[in-house]
Each structure stands twice: as structure tokens, then as C-alpha cells.
Design a protein around this nucleic acid. Structure first.
Lengths: 195, 195
DNA sequence: CAAATAATGTTGACACTGTAAACATAAAAG
DNA sequence: CTTTTATGTTTACAGTGTCAACATTATTTG
């Protein structure tokens, strides 16, 4: 029953699953298509029937993680619907704590170039990684309602908050700084002051 | 005269120089020791007489860039000695504009794990990349003089500014966002409001 | 239902990588 | 001048992404 007979059945899914597993365990540097193939019990060239390149698989994995994380973010957003400040703070806390807990996720997500960057300033954006868009949406809409100003003004505030949260996270994950204490608390303090 | 006779003369320097060149041109992904060796007109194993691994060479290159950039930062710091706010703003502007102009530098610098992270909260730090320490120093000392408070309080402010500047830079360099306008101006606006 | 076709896996190869051991040459030290 | 040390070269190995030729199974079609 464990034996596979030539056809795997659901290789595409399994590649993503096992790929994420490998990425989480060994990181981006040590990640290799051949290892993933072996984990799936399949030959080295098999993945190419489902993904055109190593990068394509990583992109698929990224999307997977992205979706899961985005729904977690959305849950928080919905839960603090009335209170904009609280909403931002909780989203920020979730963001940093999630990434600190899953540093490998964060790395392989942000180490890849995004072909379609968000365009700020007019408030519209195409789709890069979903949680970024998700967080930006929350920020932009929140600031618009809160401050009731026109375009170009609130975008700077949203950008400030997002830069701060993201920047702090980057440094923690990359070991640029070692913060002694709860990153979640730190971000709460910083964002609170900023708002 | 262009001909080399067995010994290169100054391979170590040349490896760093040509390595930086390659890194700047093709980025971290395509960077390879063998290519650098060829650029130096030397065999593939030669670099190992000077660097124990590929990573060791990259570290050396990083240090090189780091030093140059740090002195540029220091110049700005000295130039605006009296005015703390101005000091921070100009350092921030230089930081973001330099990194946007040299995205590859930024990437290979920050994509590597730092073995010795800065320890904040008590204000002391070991040495990771020098420009980080340099900027942090400016921030910490500035806030201390400005606010005249004890430890633990101003560190949060310094961290906020640094997170914001760094985070904005990361997003620009990684193409997470596409800011329409001068990044330098944007950072000036954001840091000004934060201070 | 049988035959043709498409989807999926395998094998083997190629060029490239980091790295190490064995060897060669030139420079420095004695 | 001889010996030692520093530096380069050759060759090799294991691992990588990727591709072409081939094998097998699933799916569609006549």
C-alpha cells in the first residue's frame, strides 16, 4: 500500500508539501529540487512535469504559505473591526511574531524578487505576496477613514507603519539585532507611538 | 606585461575587487567562486589559498563595502554635528539612496546571517556590519543627548527610526513596493514626522 | 472495447558548482 | 645555495538545475 506504482497520484501537492517541509528545516540555501523529489519518492526529473523550474516550485510554496498567513491576518482584522488603532497594532503583532516563529518562511518569501511590486501613492497595487497586500489594504483603508484626507497624504502614514513593522521584523529574522524581550511588545509600543 | 607568471602578486585584493564587481553585476544568485577566479586569471582552486570558502570571500567583500559606506555615513554625521534631527534625517536619506543605487550591495549584505547580532536595550552591541553599528550609534547617542532620559526608553525611539528607514529600504530594494517619487524625500518626510 | 493520444515518471546526460588532495613553482629564510 | 613556506595548478568528487529520449499509465476517442 505504501508502494507506488509508477504514477504518484498527487505529485504536485506533495512537492509543495514536502518542499515547504524541507525549506522550513534546512532553509533556502540547502534547498534543492532533487532532495524534494527524493522526499516524494520520485526521480530527479519528475518535478519538471509540474514545475518549469526550481524557482517555480518555490513560488508555489510561497503562495501556499501566503494564503494561510493572509487568512490569519484577516481573522485579526475582522475581530477588531471597530477600532482602527487596535486593528493595526494587532495585525502588526501577529506579523512580527509569526515571522519570528517561522524565520525560514520569511526568508524564502522575501529573498525572491517580486516581479510585480505594489504601487503606492495612488493606493492601487498589483499582486505580490498576498499578506503584504492584505496588510497594506488594512492600513490604507484605515487611515483613509480615520483621517478623512485625500490621496497622497495618508499613504505616507501607512507606509511609515508598514516600513517600521517590516523593518523590525527583517532585522530580527536576519539576526541583525537581538532584541531582549518580546518582539510583539516592542512592536506594540513602537506602532502605538507612531499612530 | 599583462602576462602573469604563476604568481599573481595580489590575488587577495583582486579577488575582493573582481568579486564585488561580479556581485554588483550579476547578483548573489549567479555569483560563483570559479567565475571570480577566472576574472582574476587564475585557476578555480586558487582562491582557497586566501579564503576558506565562498562565504568567506563574500564576507570579505561585505566588509570592504561596509567600510566605504560607513565613512560616507560618518562624514554626514560630522557635517551636521549640532543639529540632531538634521543629523538623523540626512543619515537616513543617505542610507536609503545609497542602497537603492546599489541594490546588489544591499542584498548580499543582508542576505547573509549575522553571527553576532547587535544587542539592543542596554545600548551596547557587538559588531555585525559596520554601517549598522554606525547608524545605531548616531541614533542612540543622539537620542540620549536630546531626551536626556535613562536606558531602555530612548532605545525604543532609536529602534523605531532605524526600523522604519531599514524597512522602507528593504522593500524598495526587494521590489516589494514601487515608490513613485524620490525615496530620499519619502524617508525625510517619514522620519521627520516620527521625530 | 480497442486504439490512439496525452499525462506523468524514469534514465542518463550535460554543464556547472563548492571543495579537497596531490602536485608544481616561485619567493623568503636559513 | 639549500630549505622551507607561500602561492597556483591539476585533477577529482559529489552535488546541483535542467533537458532529451524513453517508459508507463490514464484518458480520450473512434
Amino acid at each position: 500500500m505504501g508502494k507506488r506504482n509508477y504514477h504518484h497520484g498527487s505529485l504536485e501537492n506533495d512537492l509543495i508539501q514536502k518542499g515547504l517541509q524541507l525549506l522550513t528545516n534546512v532553509g533556502l540555501e540547502e534547498f534543492s529540487l532533487r532532495k524534494v523529489a527524493e522526499m516524494c519518492g520520485v526521480s530527479n526529473a519528475a518535478p519538471y512535469r509540474h514545475f518549469s523550474s526550481k524557482e517555480a516550485l518555490i513560488t508555489a510554496i510561497t503562495t501556499q504559505v501566503s494564503n494561510e498567513f493572509t487568512s490569519a491576518l484577516d481573522t485579526v482584522v475582522q475581530h477588531h473591526k471597530g477600532d482602527f488603532k487596535k486593528q493595526i497594532i494587532e495585525v502588526s503583532k501577529l506579523y512580527v511574531s509569526f515571522m519570528v516563529e517561522h524565520p525560514q518562511h520569511f526568508k524564502f518569501i522575501f529573498m525572491m524578487d517580486h516581479k510585480m511590486p505594489i504601487t503606492i501613492k495612488d493606493g492601487t497595487f498589483t499582486e505580490p505576496e498576498r499578506y503584504i497586500v492584505s496588510m497594506f489594504k488594512t492600513l490604507f483603508e484605515g487611515f483613509r477613514k480615520e483621517q478623512n484626507t485625500e490621496l497622497g497624504s495618508w499613504s505616507m502614514d501607512a507606509l511609515s507603519v508598514w516600513s517600521l513593522v517590516h523593518g523590525f521584523t527583517v532585522m530580527l529574522v536576519n539576526n541583525t539585532i537581538a532584541y531582549e524581550g518580546s518582539p510583539s511588545d516592542a512592536v506594540e509600543t513602537m506602532v502605538s507611538r507612531l499612530l
